[in-house]
Amino acid sequence: MNPLLLDVPLELETERLILRAPLQAGDGEVVYQAIEDSIYELKSWLSLFQEPPTVEEVEIMLRNAHINFLKRESFRFLIFDKGSNEFIGTTSLHEIDWDIPKCEVGYWISTKYSGNGYMTEAVRELVNFGLNHFKFRRIGIRCESTNLKSRAIAEKLGFVLEGTLRNDNFSADGNKLTDTCVYSIIK
Rank of each mutant, 00 (worst) to 15 (best):
N85W: 07
N132G: 12
N128W: 06
E125K: 15
L78N: 11
L93F: 05
P101H: 07
T111E: 13
E104D: 14
G130Q: 00
F134W: 05
E125R: 15
N116W: 12
S114P: 03
K112V: 04
L93G: 06
G117T: 03
G115D: 02
G130S: 01
E95C: 06
K102F: 02
S84H: 06
L126P: 03
G130D: 03
T111F: 08
F80N: 10
T90C: 13
N85V: 07
A122Q: 01
H94P: 00
T91V: 13
M119P: 02
N128A: 07
E125Y: 07
N128I: 05
F77S: 08
Y113Q: 08
T120W: 03
M119N: 06
E125A: 15
E95R: 03
N116P: 06
G117E: 09
D99C: 09
I79T: 05
H94Y: 14
S92T: 15
M119Y: 04
N85C: 06
W98F: 06
S110H: 12
G130I: 04
E95D: 14
E104V: 05
G83D: 14
I100N: 05
S92R: 11
I100G: 01
K82T: 05
K112C: 09
V127N: 03
K82M: 07
M119L: 02
I88V: 15
V123I: 01
D81L: 10
G130W: 01
G106Y: 10
V127S: 01
S84N: 11
E104H: 06
S84D: 10
F129I: 04
E95V: 00
S114E: 13
K82Y: 05
I96A: 06
R124G: 02
V127A: 00
V127W: 02
Y113K: 08
S114R: 07
W98N: 10
V127T: 08
E86L: 13
I88N: 08
S84A: 11
S84V: 07
N85S: 12
W98P: 04
L131D: 01
G89S: 14
S114K: 11
F134R: 13
R124Y: 05
T111Q: 15
S114H: 09
I96T: 10
T91E: 07
G89L: 12
F77I: 09
M119C: 12
R124I: 01
H133T: 11
G89C: 14
E125P: 08
I109R: 07
W98Q: 01
L78K: 08
F77Y: 15
G117N: 03
G89R: 12
L126H: 04
L93I: 12
P101L: 08
G117C: 07
N128H: 10
I100E: 02
F77V: 11
I100H: 02
F80K: 00
L131T: 00
M119R: 08
H94M: 00
Y113M: 04
H94E: 01
H94T: 04
G106R: 13
T120L: 05
I88S: 08
W98V: 00
P101C: 04
K102N: 13
D99K: 12
Y107N: 12
S114V: 15
F134A: 09
G89P: 04
G117K: 05
T91L: 11
G115S: 09
Y113S: 07
K82S: 09
Y118V: 02
N116Q: 15
R76M: 14
D97T: 06
L131H: 02
G89N: 11
T111R: 14
C103S: 03
K102D: 02
